[in-house]
Design a binder for these strands. Structure first.
Lengths: 240, 240
DNA sequence: TTCCAAAAGTCTGGAAACAGACCATTGGCG
DNA sequence: CGCCAATGGTCTGTTTCCAGACTTTTGGAA
């Protein structure tokens, strides 16, 4: 015996009530830029089905976000819920405050999780034979980040990282990667996007893509580790 | 803006109703051997709190499992819900049937996910400086698997694999690893535990532990890949 | 033998979530 | 200008889920 109860399995079956979970999810969609500022969420009826909740509950969540200033809801044909949120231009936003709001150990947990997921995803992808179409997607995402305007940088960086997991074809892995990214979004949004950091990141991104396209999992691992440790170090620097 | 909707984020907020999810979770606890055969689940009131559901809902789930023959429920002091399930002695259980019940692509999804998670976890652990206590836990779990009676083999194998993720100290990663394992439990339970396979697995397990204790992430990666690909090949062989 | 504590079992009223029908608003198109 | 389709807004009855009080069973301890 001697099994300690494996908290993972005996933990909560559901994170909260449907309303709260929905608010959280929509907030993630907005903050990660899955729907870019100015963009529109799918129609209520459709979105409710996708999220597996009733329209009533979805509307409550949308209203909360509207009142909080994240969405602009317009009726009539061509109406909908439009994203008005602009990520706080990095450089402002108190990083320490964000960290303080996280539980103790939660920061390390998130960084470790992200490291494991992204390493794993990159390696799997490097091991997989990629079709030319998929190679192109990867190159494209990389180019998008490199060409990004400062205001779009985080969003496109997110898209790049998630693309790696998505291209493995594993929905579970894509979902885990999105989760991992979410755990650090607020942190990343709170540190400035500086020229030298972007240059480093670009080189590391390029190394990741090269290793993946090259089918070299070991190089992919090294590139991911270097990149993520760079980010972690940056965070620590801003916290020190 | 040409974003395709990132299914991960726009997917269902909750998997089903509370009852179904609870049944599923308890079944996992039983099948993974988190509570060993003969063992007792926590008291209803306590368990309901841990699972974040009401006692009524929990009781419905327990009753369903009782009627399905997984649990024996006894009242009175020293009563409780006792696990009576014995993993179907491998060799029986129709693997094809299990696979058929999974959705299309779900098998590959699960195997890919598991590969990524376990590779990531092993590497992270190999990169981390481990305390002697933690090293000991790892060695211990390895020894447990090697000494396992056939009936206990899967359970202890599970414990070994999960220990790697847990030792990273990341609850998120431990949870993801448990999830990944769950996705393949039914499959593994449906294939026989054969001597030669156990020997291979033992050698691979040992290689994983050695690489981790050695602080060699690259060797850890190779060992994990070899081990998991061996399992995947075994599955394919039984499906062919 | 009696009592007690810990556990499962039962009941009730209320809140949350849902499904589905229906209403109101809006902008383009004929 | 008037219609129409797409969308958000509202209402109603039903089901699920919950919190909490109460009941019954059981085995050990006094």
């Amino acid at each position: 015996m001697g099994e300690q109860p494996l908290v993972a399995l005996l933990g909560p079956v559901r994170a909260g009530n449907a309303f709260e979970e929905t608010v959280e999810r929509l907030l993630q969609v907005i903050k990660l830029g899955v729907v870019a500022p100015g963009g529109k969420l799918p129609p209520e009826r459709e979105l409710a089905v996708q999220l597996g909740i009733s329209r009533v509950t979805l509307r409550e969540a949308i209203r909360a976000l509207q009142e909080a200033g994240y969405l602009d809801v317009r009726r009539g044909r061509y109406g909908g819920a439009f994203v008005v949120y602009e990520p706080p231009l990095p450089g402002r936003g108190d990083l320490r405050e964000v960290v303080r709001r996280m539980g103790p150990g939660e920061l390390d947990d998130a960084l470790t999780f992200r490291m494991a997921i992204e390493c794993g995803a990159a390696q799997v992808l490097a091991t997989t034979g990629l079709t030319e179409g998929r190679r192109e997607v990867l190159r494209r995402r990389l180019a998008d980040v490199n060409d990004a305007a400062p205001a779009d940088y985080r969003r496109l960086d997110t898209a790049f990282h998630l693309a790696i997991a998505e291209l493995t074809g594993s929905a579970l892995l894509a979902s885990a990667a999105a989760d991992a990214r979410l755990r650090v979004t607020d942190l990343l949004n709170a540190i400035p996007v500086l020229g030298p950091n972007i240059d480093h990141a670009a080189a590391q991104h390029a190394a990741m893509v090269a290793a993946i396209l090259d089918g070299d999992p070991e190089a992919a691992r090294r590139a991911v580790v270097e990149h993520l440790e760079g980010t972690a170090a940056l965070l620590r620097a801003f916290l020190a």
